[in-house]
Design a protein around this nucleic acid. Structure first.
Length: 242
DNA sequence: AATGGTCTCAACCGCGTCACT
DNA sequence: TAGTGACGCGGTTGAGACCAT
């Protein structure tokens, strides 16, 4: 597959820290026109930056809905739990933390939480105890169910769409037997896969063949034990959890 | 006050994926 | 089916802030 020449190869593009003037130009443009084609944005906005740089600056720093400031204890715990389930899927983790970006979560993980876990005697990568393998924060069976319910990288559709029925049945049985309810809802065929941060875990309108899924099971915060917390933005809308 | 080490986080880089032709 | 263009993600880097001596 051919890749487009990176825009940073273009002449006359600035790099490094953004100036106040550049920020203003980008904010003004985004306010007026909203998010569109990043590649053409710099020229349209009068910026000497590549589109990639503009996108990053907007998403990680200039977006109006960003929550600045320290992470709360509740956010810490959510990150730790989600990381134990998802690994380094920073965008997915950030999607469950309103106002936080993947870059912010990633940095926070690397600078704070890693150390915090090590102090607790937990391996930050495996979430297993550092001194041995007696107890596990997450089991292999957890992963089986998660992987089953998560989109496969090689597929543009859902897992259910691409797997033979017999394989699905096997995994159904596994999931049902384990019944860890670590369900992550996939967008249904009738709804497009949202790329908006925070909306990845959309409800499965038609319950997948994995198991009879209750509405509550679709709320990841609920599954993680944060259903009563302020950070759980999942709420029923037309009877669905989102 | 000066210096050197450490930490933080904004920004960059390269690659995978998707949509379109 | 293959090629192309663009976006998004995760890993890495480096400048500046902070701290200890």
């Amino acid at each position: 597959m051919g890749r487009s020449p990176c825009c940073e190869l273009e002449a006359h593009t600035n790099k490094g820290t953004w100036t106040k003037e550049e920020d203003e130009l980008l904010v003004n443009y985004m306010t007026l026109h909203g998010q569109g084609c990043w590649r053409s944005l710099p020229k349209a906005a009068g910026l000497l930056r590549c589109g990639k740089s503009c996108r990053l600056r907007w998403i990680n720093y200039l977006r109006p809905d960003l929550k600045r400031g320290n992470f709360t204890q509740e956010e810490d715990e959510i990150i730790i739990k989600l990381h134990s389930l998802l690994g380094n899927k920073w965008s997915l983790i950030a999607g469950r933390l309103p106002g936080r970006t993947d870059n912010e979560v990633k940095n926070y993980w690397n600078t704070h939480i890693k150390r915090k876990l090590i102090r607790r005697g937990i391996d930050p990568q495996t979430h297993h105890p550092l001194n041995g393998a007696t107890a596990t924060a997450i089991t292999d069976n957890d992963r089986i169910c998660l992987e089953f319910r998560s989109p496969t990288p090689s597929s543009s559709g859902t897992t259910e769409e691409t797997q033979p029925h017999s394989q699905l049945q096997d995994k159904q049985n596994t999931a049902n037997a384990v019944n860890l309810e670590l369900s992550i809802g996939l967008p249904s065929n009738s709804t497009s896969l949202s790329k908006v941060p925070g909306q990845f875990f959309r409800p499965v309108v038609t319950p997948p063949p994995c198991a009879p899924v209750l509405a509550k099971a679709l709320c990841l915060c609920w599954r993680l034990g944060f259903q009563n917390g302020q950070l759980c933005k999942c709420q029923t809308r037309n009877g669905l959890y989102r």
